[in-house]
Amino acid sequence: MEYIVRTENLSKHFGKEKAVSGLEMKIPKGEIYGFLGPNGAGKTTTIRMLLGLMKPDSGRIEIFQKDLKKERLNILGRVGSLVESPSYYPHLTAKENLEAMRKILGVPKQRIAEVLEIVRLTDACDKKVKGFSLGMKQRLGIAASLLNNPELLILDEPTNGLDPSGIIEIRNLIKSLPSECGMTVLISSHLLSEIDQMATTVGIVTKGKMIFQDSIEAMRMFSQQSVLLKVSESDKAWRSLLGRGMKAGLDSGIISLPQQSDEQVAEAVRGLVADGFSVYRVEEEKRSLEDIFLQMTREEQAG
């Protein structure tokens, strides 16, 4: 597979604290990679290292299959980025902010109007950014990241500070980028729902370590349901189910049947009724991605 971003054993510490340790990130071409983790997990530190804003203590970064150390300029020319809080020059207008960057990137002047249109800032383009709301600054940051028509777009918490309609707009924009412009996108977020709605590949990081990295479908596999049974004499009922050779759990009077087919659930109920237990409720418990995420991060902390 062609990886646009690949890190090997990437590590960075601040004093004694390990911000990123042994991180192996793999982003296939054309994917929207959701970089997910709680606050302070090392997402921004990783992104800073990907952009060469910070030097890793050890490890290797390859972008476009080139070593970042050796071909930084070439790589950065093909990358657009928005890191952490939006960066801007408060004394300049939106248009002038983009112009200052355009002079270095050397893209045609009309591109400024184009990106302003994309993020819907055209009306405010001659106002000083000082007076912008956080959402407008965020839009400007996204506009700036698109200025050079990048092949890889790195957005750190891109929907921060946006209102709900703005979030939907930006989400749709990001979703359209791989198919329309052939971009590969890396978005970081601490909100799973955010990633769930955009990403095609997910990397979950906690305490500087990558604890999960696969397609979003693979992640959803974790959310398979289990069936909960509320019955009379739950302790005895549970034993009878085990006696029938079925997998079952018991938790505070509720029997759970993990990952069973419809037929197996029916068989379990039939068996319980035959053994004289009363079945009060049969419920399906669907674990949200949120639960899985929490469980994963918790397991990591325990281990």
Binding site: G52, L76, S87, Y88, Y89, M101
Partner: peptide, 10 residues
């Protein structure tokens, strides 16, 4: 307001 990271990521 983060001008350094903007410039140096170019």
């Amino acid at each position: 307001s983060g001008g350094w990271k903007q410039v140096l990521a170019l």
